[in-house]
Amino acid sequence: MPYFKKESIKRLILFFIMFIICSIWVLPIVYGVLTSFKSEIEVKDMNCHFIAEEWTLENYRYDLPNTG
């Protein structure tokens, strides 16, 4: 197998490994961001959803009260 082909296969395998790791790595951040758009009731709902069922800016309005 030519050297450059072998190199690109190696880089591709490493890419997939890193892709899986980084997807897991970024999950808490994504979850944190998505949770910020959930209402208080939905956050504490026993039937947990990864993505908000009803998107709301309520939490941001609470944190930034003077932004209207």
């Binding site: 190696k10 880089r11 591709l12 395998i13 490493l14 890419f15 490994i17 890193m18 892709f19 790791i21 980084c22 790595w25 970024v26 951040i29």
Partner: peptide, 15 residues
């Protein structure tokens, strides 16, 4: 070992 998108992975891991 320079996988594709290594800079992107580096940023995600550092975030």
């Amino acid at each position: 070992m320079c996988p594709y998108c290594s800079k992107l992975f580096q940023s995600i891991l550092y975030m």
